[in-house]
Simulated assay, not measured.
Amino acid sequence: MAELDVQPKKKNPWWIWLIIAAVIIALILLVRGCDKAADGSENSRDSTETGDTTASITGAATLSDWDNVDFNASETSYDEVTDKSISVRGNANYAIYGLGENILFSVGDTSIQASAESQLKQISASLNKRFKGASLAVYGSTDSTGGAKMNKEIGESRANAVKHWLVENAGIAESTISVHSRGQSSPVASNATPEGRQMNRRVDIVARIQK
Rank of each mutant, 00 (worst) to 15 (best):
92 A>P: 07
170 A>L: 05
6 V>W: 05
209 I>G: 00
160 N>H: 06
26 A>P: 08
67 D>H: 08
107 V>C: 10
104 L>A: 15
3 E>P: 13
93 N>R: 00
79 D>Q: 10
169 N>A: 12
79 D>S: 12
163 K>D: 11
171 G>K: 14
165 W>H: 04
2 A>K: 14
151 N>K: 12
193 T>C: 10
29 L>Y: 09
195 E>G: 02
88 V>H: 04
152 K>T: 12
15 W>E: 01
180 H>P: 04
102 N>G: 11
166 L>A: 01
105 F>H: 04
209 I>R: 10
201 R>C: 05
156 E>I: 05
70 D>Q: 09
87 S>Y: 09
37 A>E: 14
118 S>I: 06
45 R>D: 15
14 W>M: 14
126 S>T: 05
118 S>C: 01
143 D>G: 08
142 T>I: 02
115 S>M: 11
65 D>F: 07
204 D>A: 02
91 N>P: 00
82 T>Q: 08
140 G>N: 15
33 G>V: 05
146 G>Q: 03
97 Y>A: 00
201 R>T: 12
76 T>W: 13
96 I>L: 01
202 R>P: 00
51 G>E: 03
63 L>C: 05
131 F>M: 14
206 V>P: 00
130 R>V: 09
74 S>N: 10
164 H>I: 13
58 T>W: 13
168 E>A: 14
75 E>T: 13
152 K>E: 10
158 R>G: 00
87 S>E: 14
80 E>K: 13
138 V>G: 10
87 S>G: 15
186 S>P: 13
131 F>H: 14
183 G>C: 02
85 S>R: 14
20 I>A: 15
28 I>D: 02
52 D>V: 00
199 M>G: 00
190 S>C: 07
42 E>L: 04
81 V>D: 02
36 K>Y: 11
190 S>G: 12
56 S>W: 10
78 Y>R: 03
77 S>H: 12
202 R>M: 03
166 L>W: 03
187 P>I: 04
170 A>C: 05
168 E>W: 10
87 S>T: 13
23 V>L: 02
162 V>Q: 01
13 P>D: 07
156 E>L: 15
7 Q>C: 01
94 Y>E: 02
156 E>S: 04
62 T>V: 07
170 A>E: 04
94 Y>R: 08
83 D>Y: 05
186 S>M: 13
31 V>D: 11
144 S>Q: 15
61 A>E: 01
3 E>N: 14
25 I>L: 12
155 G>Y: 02
55 A>G: 15
102 N>P: 06
7 Q>M: 07
32 R>H: 15
144 S>Y: 02
96 I>H: 07
169 N>K: 15
49 E>H: 07
54 T>V: 08
18 L>Y: 10
20 I>L: 12
15 W>A: 05
59 G>N: 11
114 A>Q: 02
32 R>M: 10
189 A>S: 15
52 D>G: 03
163 K>L: 06
147 G>H: 02
